[in-house]
Design a protein around this nucleic acid. Structure first.
Length: 855
RNA sequence: GCCCGGGUGGUGGAAUGGCAGACACGAAGGUCUUAGAAGCCUUUGCCGAAAGGUGUGCGGGUUCGAGUCCCGCCCCGGGCACCA
C-alpha cells in the first residue's frame, strides 16, 4: 500500500495517499450512526479567479486537524466544503467578456477544488454544494418565501449609489471617495425600490441569545454594538400655537428634561414642511437641499462643525412649560429614534457644541458634586428641576417618565441602531426572487388559493399611480432559474439586467402552477392566468451563505432543505471557524434566518453556531497585508510544489496561535520541513527499509516512555484547545528524543505517528503503512496516556532566597519542607546567600519551589 | 472620541502567580567531505573574564514571589463613530 520511495519524496507520497482516501471514501459522514457526532465547519470560500489565498488553508488546516482527531476519538465527523459562488466579480467578468457568469464560476470552482484537494483536507466531497446551483438556490428561494409568509419581507424606496455616467447601481466598495471605482465618475444617491428584511423584529432576541453562544468576546461585543440597544423614553412636546400637533422625541436621558432649551429635527423629518415659518422657509429649504446632496458618509465625516437652521417654530417643554425653539440640523438622523430630539446642551456634548455655535441657552440640571464643567454627562443629583430636585439621575428619569406617562405624553421605550436589511441587488448574478407583481384585483383572485405562502397583509408598491402586489410563486414552481440574457449590463434605468428581458419579465402567469408565457402571446385559457410582471431584482450574496451549514446535513434532499432526522442528528456545527471580517454581517444575518426557521419549527435549536473561532490574518514577509500590488503574496501551490502539503499544513499551524495576526517567514518553513524529514529518517533507514533502531520487543528507556505519555497528553489537549503551535513543538521535542534513543519500540513509533497524523496526514499514512500498520492510520483509535506513567520519582526543586532563583536540585517527590530547607542550607550555591542572615520565613510549594526569606 | 485585542531575544513565538525565553528560525564555532549541500555536535537575551548583575513598552502598587493580578500612562493593530 505504501509507496516505494527511499527518501521522503512528498511528490510521490502525497498524491498517492490522496487517491487512497478518495477511493476508499474514508471521510464520508454517515447520517445514521450510533457514534457521537461532531460537525466542524469552515466558512466556505468565494471561488475567485485569483485562486486560493494562503489565508484559506490556515483556517482549513485547523478544522481538518480537528476533524481527523475527532474521527480517531471515535466520532462520526461531518466536515464539508462548498462554494459561495454568487457575487460581483463573476458578474463584472461577464460584463467584460460577454460570457455567462456561470461558465467563469465553474472554472474558478474547478481550480479551487483542485487546490483544496491538493492540501489533503478530509472533506466529505459527496456533500459539496454550490450556492449558484439551482438545486441549491431553490431552497434559498424557499426560505425567502418563509420570511415573506411571516411578513418579514417588504418593499421600500431606499437610497443606493447611482453612477449616471456608467448608468448603473454601484456597491459600497465600488465607490471610492465619492467617485466610481471604475472610471472615476461622480456618483449620487438615488432612491430605488428595494426588498428589505425585517431583521429589527428580531433585535432583542439576537442580542439576548448572544449570552448563549461560545464566541470570541470581541465578536459578541461587535454584534451588541451593531444591534445598539438603548433604553429611554419617548416624550411628546406640544407645538406652540398648534395645540393638536405633537412632536415626539426619543431620549435616553429623560432626567435632563428640565434642561431642554431647544429641539432639533432631522432635515428629512415629515413635520419640517408644516412647521417652518414663512420668514424661515427659504433658509430651511436651502439647508435641506445641501443636506440631501450629502451622503451619509459626508454627513458624518464633516461632523466637526455643526450646522443647522432655525425653523421659526417653537415647542412647549412639558415640564417647564417654557417655549423652546425648534431647529433643523443634520446631526440628527432621520433613521434613528423618531428623527427628532430634545436638546439638552448642559449634559450632551453634541447639543452643547450646537448651542455654543448658535448662542442657545444652556441650563445645568445635573449636579455632579464637584463643580463639573459643562457639558457634564456623568452621574449626579437633579437641580433646577422643580419637584425632582435632589433625585439621582436614575430616580429622576424614572420619576419624570412616570409623571408624564400619567398625562399620556411619555412612555418608556427601547431603541435599536440595527436597521432592516436591504436584501435586493440590481444585478444578474444572484438568486432571482420567486415573486411576481400583479394588480390588487388579481392578488385577490390568487389569494383564494390556500396553498400560496402569503403574508398577513399584501406587500405592495405604487408606481405612477398604479399599485402592485407581490405574489409568491407556489413552492412547486421552485427553483425560479435565472433566464439567459442578451447583456449582463444593467438596464440603464438602475434596474437589473433581467429587466431588459421583456419576454421573461412581462408574462401571463398561472398563479396555481407558477407557469408563464410571454405577455405578447395570447392569454392562455383559464381564470388562473393573470397578467404579471416578474421581480427583476436579485438577492445579495449573503442569502446563500445564510443557511448553507444546514444544507450540508442533507445536501441531496429533493423534498426539503434538510430532513428532520438529519437536522436532529447533526444539529448545528460544533465548531465554526472563519475570519473575523464576518463578525457582524454574515454571522448576524445567518442567526436571523436561523431564528426564523426555528420559529417555523424547521430547525430544532435557536442558534446556528454554538462555538465560533476566528483564525488570524497571515501577513506578508514584510509584515504588511498580503496584496498583489505589494508583491508579497504567498501562493499555496508554490509551497506544495517546493515543500509538500504536509510541510505547508504544519508550518501554517506552527506560525503562532491560530487567532493571531502573524507574518509569513519563508525560512521558518524550512525548519518545519526539516522536522518532517527527521521523522522520516528515524523510521526509514538510508536503504529505504525500516530503521534498524526500531525493535518489536523490549522496553523503551524510561525517559522516552514518559515523554511519549506526556506527548500524547499534551498533543490531545492542545488540539482540543486549538493550540496547534504548541502541539507541534511538543512533537518536535519527542522527535528530538527519538533521534537520541538507540532503540525504540515499534509501538512507540506507531503512537507517535498517530499523533502526527492529523497534522501531516500523508507522511503519517506512509510511515504507518511501512511500520506494518493495518489500513489507514486514521482508523486506529487515538492513543491514550497513563497518568501514573507521567509521575516521576524525583522532581526538580527550585531554591530561591528572597524570591530570587539561586539553584535547583533533583529531590525525591515526597520531600518535606524541613528536608528541603536542610538541602538548601547545605547547597553550595544557596548557602553563601544565607551566611550571617536569619531566615524569617520559608515558603514551600511541594515539588516546585522553596523560597527562603532572610533578614 | 468610544469599544476590543496586543506590546517578551536578531526573528516567529512559549510560559495553572513559582527557574522568563520551551519549540523553531537566524547566527557563530566544530565534525564529516576533494569541495559543497544535507546531517550531526556545541554556543547563542543583554552586561561581565568570572562571581555576579540585569532583563517581558513606561511609571507606580499588591505579594515571600509578577510577563501573568490592580492603578495610571505610551505605542501598535482591529472595530464603531453625531445613534439622542
Amino acid at each position: 500500500m505504501a509507496t516505494k520511495c527511499t527518501d521522503y519524496n512528498f511528490h510521490e507520497i502525497e498524491p498517492h495517499w490522496q487517491s487512497f482516501w478518495e477511493q476508499n471514501r474514508v471521510f464520508r459522514a454517515d447520517n445514521t450512526s450510533a457514534r457521537p457526532k461532531y460537525y466542524v465547519l469552515d466558512m466556505f470560500p468565494y471561488p475567485s479567479g485569483a485562486g486560493l489565498h494562503i489565508g484559506h488553508p490556515e483556517g482549513y488546516t485547523a478544522t481538518d486537524i480537528l476533524a481527523r482527531y475527532k474521527r480517531a476519538r471515535g466520532c462520526n465527523v461531518l466536515h464539508p466544503i462548498g462554494w459561495d459562488a454568487f457575487g460581483l466579480p463573476a458578474e463584472q467578468h461577464a460584463v467584460k467578456t460577454g460570457t455567462h457568469p456561470a461558465a467563469n464560476t465553474r472554472n474558478n470552482i474547478t481550480n479551487f477544488r483542485r487546490q483544496i484537494k491538493a492540501l489533503g483536507f478530509s472533506y466529505d466531497w459527496d456533500r459539496e454544494i454550490d450556492t449558484t446551483d439551482p438545486k441549491y438556490y431553490r431552497w434559498t428561494q424557499w426560505i425567502f418565501l418563509q420570511l415573506f409568509r411571516r411578513g418579514l419581507a417588504y418593499v421600500d424606496e431606499r437610497p443606493v449609489w447611482w453612477c449616471p455616467e456608467l448608468r448603473t447601481v454601484l456597491a459600497n466598495e465600488e465607490v471610492v471617495d465619492g467617485k466610481s471605482e471604475v472610471g472615476g465618475f461622480p456618483v449620487e444617491r438615488r432612491n430605488l425600490r428595494q426588498w428589505v428584511l425585517r431583521i429589527t423584529a428580531y433585535a432583542e432576541r439576537l442580542l439576548e441569545d448572544l449570552k448563549e453562544v461560545d464566541w470570541p468576546e470581541s465578536t459578541k461585543r461587535m454584534q451588541e454594538a451593531w444591534i445598539g440597544r438603548s433604553e429611554g423614553a419617548e416624550i411628546e412636546f406640544e407645538l406652540d400655537g398648534r395645540p393638536r400637533d405633537r412632536l415626539r422625541v426619543f431620549t435616553t436621558r429623560p432626567d435632563t428634561l428640565f434642561g431642554c432649551t431647544y429641539m432639533v429635527l432631522a432635515p428629512e423629518h415629515p413635520l419640517v414642511d408644516s412647521l417652518v415659518t414663512a420668514d424661515q422657509r427659504a433658509a430651511v429649504e436651502a439647508y435641506r437641499k445641501t443636506a440631501a446632496a450629502k451622503s451619509d458618509l459626508e454627513r458624518t465625516d464633516l461632523a466637526k462643525d455643526k450646522s443647522g437652521v432655525f425653523s421659526g417654530a417653537h415647542a412647549i417643554n412639558p415640564v417647564t412649560g417654557l417655549r423652546v425653539p425648534i431647529w433643523i440640523a443634520d446631526y440628527v438622523l432621520m433613521g434613528y429614534g423618531t428623527g427628532a430630539i430634545m436638546a439638552v446642551p448642559g449634559h450632551d456634548e453634541r447639543d452643547y457644541e450646537f448651542a455654543q455655535r448658535f448662542s442657545l441657552p444652556i441650563v445645568p440640571v445635573i449636579d455632579g458634586g464637584a463643580g463639573q464643567p459643562l457639558p457634564y454627562t456623568g452621574d449626579g443629583r437633579l437641580i433646577n428641576s422643580g419637584s425632582f430636585n435632589g433625585l439621582s439621575v436614575r430616580d429622576g428619569a424614572a420619576g419624570i417618565v412616570r409623571e408624564l406617562s400619567a398625562l399620556g405624553v411619555a412612555r418608556a421605550t427601547v431603541n435599536y441602531k440595527l436597521r432592516d436589511w436591504l436584501f435586493s441587488r440590481q444585478r444578474y448574478w444572484g438568486e432571482p426572487f420567486p415573486i411576481v407583481w400583479v394588480s390588487p384585483e388579481d392578488y385577490a383572485v390568487a389569494q383564494r388559493q390556500a396553498s400560496l405562502p402569503l403574508p398577513p397583509s399584501p406587500v405592495t408598491f405604487s408606481q405612477e399611480g398604479t399599485t402592485y402586489c407581490a405574489l409568491p410563486l407556489p413552492e412547486s414552481a421552485l427553483p425560479l432559474e435565472l433566464p439567459p440574457v442578451q447583456s449582463y449590463l444593467p438596464s440603464g434605468t438602475g434596474e437589473s439586467p433581467l429587466a431588459n428581458e421583456k419576454a421573461w419579465v412581462e408574462i401571463w402567469y398561472n398563479h396555481a402552477t407558477g407557469a408563464a408565457v410571454p405577455a405578447d402571446q395570447p392569454r392562455p385559457p383559464g381564470s388562473e392566468w393573470l397578467r404579471a410582471r416578474r421581480e427583476t431584482n436579485t438577492m445579495p450574496q449573503w442569502a446563500g451563505s445564510c443557511w448553507y451549514y444546514l444544507r450540508f446535513l442533507d445536501p441531496h434532499n429533493q423534498a426539503a432543505f434538510a430532513s428532520p432526522e438529519a437536522l436532529r442528528y447533526w444539529a448545528s456545527p460544533d465548531l465554526y471557524v472563519g475570519g473575523a471580517e464576518h463578525a457582524v454581517l454574515h454571522l448576524l444575518y445567518a442567526r436571523f434566518w436561523h431564528k426564523v426557521l426555528f420559529d417555523q419549527g424547521l430547525v430544532p435549536q435557536p442558534e446556528p453556531f454554538r462555538k465560533l473561532f476566528h483564525q488570524g490574518i497571515i501577513l506578508g514577509e514584510d509584515g504588511e497585508k498580503m496584496s498583489k500590488s505589494r508583491g508579497n503574496v504567498v501562493n499555496p501551490d508554490a509551497i506544495i510544489q517546493s515543500h509538500g502539503t504536509d510541510t505547508l499544513r504544519l508550518y501554517l499551524m506552527f506560525l503562532g496561535p491560530l487567532e493571531a495576526m502573524k507574518p509569513w517567514n519563508p525560512r521558518g518553513i524550512e525548519g518545519v520541513h526539516r522536522f518532517l524529514q527527521r521523522v522520516w529518517r528515524e523510521v526509514i533507514g538510508p536503504d529505504g527499509n525500516l530503521h534498524p533502531k526500531i525493535v518489536s520487543a523490549g522496553a523503551d528507556a524510561p525517559e522516552l516512555s514518559r515523554l511519549l505519555h506526556e506527548t500524547v497528553k499534551k498533543v490531545g489537549e492542545d488540539i482540543e484547545g486549538l493550540r496547534f503551535n504548541t502541539a507541534i513543538s511538543q512533537m518536535m521535542i519527542f522527535s528530538n528524543a527519538l533521534q537520541k534513543a538507540s532503540t525504540v519500540r515499534r509501538e512507540t513509533v506507531s503512537q507517535f505517528l498517530q499523533l502526527l497524523a492529523p497534522f501531516a496526514p500523508h507522511l503519517a499514512e506512509e510511515l504507518w503503512a511501512r511500520l506494518g500498520g493495518q489500513g489507514s492510520v486514521m482508523l486506529a483509535p487515538w492513543p491514550t496516556y497513563d497518568a501514573s506513567a507521567l509521575a516521576a520519582s524525583e522532581v526538580k526543586l527550585v531554591f530561591q532566597v528572597n524570591g530570587k532563583y539561586r539553584a535547583d536540585q533533583l529531590v525525591p517527590i515526597d520531600t518535606t519542607e524541613e528536608q528541603a530547607v536542610a538541602i538548601a542550607r547545605g547547597h553550595p550555591r544557596v548557602a553563601p546567600h544565607l551566611t550571617g542572615k536569619t531566615i524569617r520565613r520559608t515558603i514551600f510549594v511541594p515539588v516546585k519551589i522553596l523560597n527562603l526569606v532572610v533578614e
